[in-house]
Design a protein around this nucleic acid. Sequence first.
DNA 1: TGAAAAATACGAAGAAATGCGTATTGCAAT
DNA 2: ATTGCAATACGCATTTCTTCGTATTTTTCA
Lengths: 224, 224
Amino acid sequence: MKKKNFAPDMPINLAIAEDNCFSRQAAIERMSKFSQIKIKHIAANGQELVSMLQKDSNIDLVLMDIEMPVMNGIEATIEVKKHWNHIKILMLTMFDDEKNLFDAILAGASGYLLKESNAEQIFRAIMDAMTGGAAMSPAIALKALNLIKNPQSESKESQDFGLSEREIELLNQLKNGLTYEQIASNLFISYHTVRKHIENIYRKLQVNNKVEAIQKASSNKLID
Amino acid sequence: MKKKNFAPDMPINLAIAEDNCFSRQAAIERMSKFSQIKIKHIAANGQELVSMLQKDSNIDLVLMDIEMPVMNGIEATIEVKKHWNHIKILMLTMFDDEKNLFDAILAGASGYLLKESNAEQIFRAIMDAMTGGAAMSPAIALKALNLIKNPQSESKESQDFGLSEREIELLNQLKNGLTYEQIASNLFISYHTVRKHIENIYRKLQVNNKVEAIQKASSNKLID
DNA sequence: TGAAAAATACGAAGAAATGCGTATTGCAAT
DNA sequence: ATTGCAATACGCATTTCTTCGTATTTTTCA
């Protein structure tokens, strides 16, 4: 694991994603008190956050609400981590729901706080995250311990995206890193047919290349 | 989960189990500062703690060292929880070792702190534990998250193929189905450098395309 | 039986990836 | 000091993939 050189004198570039304008304003005010923190982006949902990051990804940490319209905090975290892995995510939530906690951890969140946390607690959590640690409200930590003790069997419900059996077969060939040519030969169909199948798979999974298709099929347990 | 009626005005009956007499004395002094806390038992190892509890089990919480002779902190926790399930255990340790953390959680610890924690942090952790929560040092929490993300397996021996850290970073980008262009932009290097890195990765892993590289890196736990 | 869906097949054009060569810089070990 | 390696960077040629069409045959199901 890489040692992170976090300079305590550098300001922390913060983004806030929160749909409720009340909470959003409250968060802004509470964080403004800290001179080390510079609020750079304020988004009303995950989509907006991603758009802002596309224009300026020089952000250290995001305070992310879980419940948001359009794109929720979990989805947004996945998206952010995919493109900007250096950005830390602190989840803020009203409820200590075990399902959300698990998904947030899988998505790559560096901490998980209840919204009732006060400014100092949030600030400390931010510092913890920036120095390579993680922070959790005690109630959350308890759930986390439960998750370790009783591992999730089936976490998120997996979709099948309406893929046919033949298409799953194609995906299993893709997974092995074969070219269209090789797959065609393996399945005794033409190169063109392989391409058409894969085109259909991409449309159904809403992806644009082999790797994404495999990852998505895999995480939905369509292939192993 | 049962709601615990913890009265804030009642003193907390504390036990301390720690073999090193230096650390033990330090712990005693640090906890004595808090009027809410009453130190009732002081043990030099797990065995001693259990003996004391057999005579007087009116204890709310134990500050437990992990490394102890005769009976270590994990074994002691199992024993304590078996006989006096109401007693909370706060683990204190020098190292953020993942294996010990896992065992401690399974044994039923309510929190896990590094010994470097100061008196206030320990006190807060005690209060968290008493009010039904859990407390973890940030460094510990990070390990806990890892445990949830990557459940204990330890199966087949994995090679590292002599990949550099930078190359692992590249692999993690590849995994997300990004193009060379996008990766270059994410890592602030040129498109050409991305290609060269990937070429080197392919050579080291002895593969010829993205999918094979990801599969091989993944099965050797170089990425997750 | 008729309609819809799935599987098959082909081509053009552009995007992306791959292989091979070369080269500079900086850092670490001998 | 020199050697070696990692990280950076560029160009060319070729292969592979992806998107967009269109089209026929087979299977499924209402």
